[in-house]
Design a protein around this nucleic acid. Structure first.
Lengths: 168, 168
DNA sequence: CGAAAACAATTGAACGCTCAAGTATTCTGT
DNA sequence: ACAGAATACTTGAGCGTTCAATTGTTTTCG
């Protein structure tokens, strides 16, 4: 029998404030990107991840894992992004099960253009409101939660050092 | 001309970790509630807010404001929740523009049953992974972000003191 | 070898959210 | 009083996500 305590007053306040902030932040980022760049935040992240990958390409499965996306979700998203000419999908003879996704020049351009406004918004809504100490704290808190949310989740990240692209 | 700095390494790490954690947390909470209680997290929040309101009722507009929801979104949600018998909508003669939403006994029951598993999940994924200090920090960070996200957002909250219902 | 399992990706239906438009009611100012 | 503005809510189309089912390909191993 598992005992489950209710949230105490302090936790309650924290939880509701956190939920509200996240809810509004999500909406704000998505709205800004859709309005200024015509793509949802999730699609921006797909492009960003691809832009940092070696050769600017990844298999669908690998990309899905990096983004913690379901294969299905990525597949739908890829269909749309491909129609828009931002990515290209193709197969290689080595393993004909896998599909390679590659970000196109047009996709890179769209990403770079979108990045300006996006980063400005992230700054305005998050980093400008926090002290350096709080940024530290937020990272540690997020890492703690990730431990419970994504136990086996490491996966490399291709951190392209000096590149003002895709800063998200 | 507004200058926009890119995110530095520290901020970059924080931002990605935070985004990932929030993305996974959102998915986990929604999945748990849909699976165990048959309602999405957003609908749980509607029921929770109503359960704490005086007389268990609010106008659509007031409820939407409390939840930072668009009227449209709430209207769609209310249609579904009403079909499911969890809420009831009606008009009062005083102002025939406004619609009053009331949570039904059935809705209260569903909420109470859903709350157990939900709170367990929130504990497991969030509060159990954080120290008391970090909970403090997370609240302060969330409040800071809220300041930028929701400038004029106060709105009362009906904090029902000693009640193990709707702890979310 | 060959059958079964594992893997990679896609598809379609259901659903919730967004946005723009629409209906109905009440308030405002002259 | 009454036209126009403001308020309250609803509706429908479009889109992204989820889930379950499906197709095609490679691996495993008896």
């Amino acid at each position: 029998m598992i005992e489950t305590r209710w949230l105490d007053g302090e936790e309650q306040r924290t939880w509701r404030t956190f939920l509200m902030a996240v809810h509004l932040l999500d909406g704000a980022l998505d709205r800004q990107l859709r309005h200024d760049a015509g793509i949802p935040h999730a699609y921006y992240q797909i492009l960003a991840m691809l832009s940092e990958a070696p050769e600017r390409e990844l298999t669908m499965t690998r990309l899905a894992r990096l983004l913690r996306s379901s294969p299905s979700r990525l597949s739908h998203a890829a269909a749309r992004l491909e129609t828009d000419g931002m990515i290209r999908r193709f197969k290689r003879p080595e393993d004909r099960r896998t599909t390679i996704v590659e970000i196109t020049d047009s996709g890179m351009k769209a990403l770079e253009e979108a990045a300006f406004g996006h980063v400005r918004e992230v700054r305005r809504l998050v980093f400008d409101t926090l002290t350096h100490e709080q940024v530290d704290q937020l990272r540690e808190i997020s890492e703690s939660m990730l431990g419970a949310l994504d136990p086996q989740g490491e996966e490399p990240r291709y951190p392209d050092p000096e590149d003002p692209r895709a800063t998200d």
